[in-house]
Design a protein around this nucleic acid. Sequence first.
DNA 1: GTCTATAAAGCGATAGAC
DNA 2: GTCTATCGCTTTATAGAC
Lengths: 192, 192
Amino acid sequence: MARLVAERADTLPVLAEVFREHGFDGASLSVITERTGLGKGSLYHFFPGGKEEMAEAVLGEISAWFEAEVFAPLDTALDPETGIRRMFEAVDAYFHSGKRICLAGAFALNDTRDRFADAVCAYFERWAASIATALAKAGATTHRAEALAEETLISIQGALILARAMNDPLVFSRTLHRLQTDVLAAATSATP
Amino acid sequence: MARLVAERADTLPVLAEVFREHGFDGASLSVITERTGLGKGSLYHFFPGGKEEMAEAVLGEISAWFEAEVFAPLDTALDPETGIRRMFEAVDAYFHSGKRICLAGAFALNDTRDRFADAVCAYFERWAASIATALAKAGATTHRAEALAEETLISIQGALILARAMNDPLVFSRTLHRLQTDVLAAATSATP
DNA sequence: GTCTATAAAGCGATAGAC
DNA sequence: GTCTATCGCTTTATAGAC
């Protein structure tokens, strides 16, 4: 059987999933060694700072993914509508249509936030700013663009919670659909 | 100095806060003994099932509070508008205007949910049903009432996440304000 | 790089004195 | 009821062989 983990970067998706499932405190090194297939020796070789450095690296990886797949397209798409459609597609795929949670959101809810406050805050601020940029480009007022961007992120995060709480991923799917309709309506109706 | 904790029921608000701050896994017995001022002997006397029973009791206490202060008024208020206004007042007070999180929502996000799935699911289902009941009583269609109830809970949960992530409780306050306007509009415009 | 062995501390839980 | 002492286990982290 082929090796699953060959280098540090290969561990990050696995670590991300472990932190998602168990939270920062619940993600013990024994779970991490089991899931990555790496011994503690290798883990501490890759992440001398231990669990905290692992989570930091995971958050960085997530930010980089969203930057490339969501934020940059929103900022640079020739027409905002394309960027917005692409965002909702990427978000649906990323959160596995409601079966996967947002790590930054989960970390935010308890004292784990304090360890990673900068990364968590930057993630949401960047996301909100890129949605607002696209809406403003479509002709919305700054105030309206920022408000709708915030409402969109709130609904995405809330839908992820409710989908898991009620064990019904459809809560997420229909929320995303509604949001896309609303945001696109704001983007097109505001077009000069 | 007066004793803070005299009986089992007195520990529940303290335990709730500890679980909110640290999550279930992060809430160690040493933190719990420190915050309640009770030794392990007393804690295990009150909660023979240990931490799991403590969290179960806390979730029960929270459900009872919402039942009395939010759900029942929504169900029984003579006019739905009164119940809805009362809900938003109670919710704003309960979550300390965005400085406090929802324990059921936080538990839902990782594998802690599996331990308390029934309580977490029942909490949100009951809440959604009572909002939908009030809206239906005001003349909204069942479909519209249920959709708006779900959207309201989603936005409340999402706003709690974003408020903490961006360290800005105003995110929660303005979301609650917007939701109240929307829900009241739906309740009054639908009135026969 | 990767492993095993081990250290030192903390964990949840129990026992028993008072 | 409440405490302290203690059990057995797990935790994070390190050391050192390979």
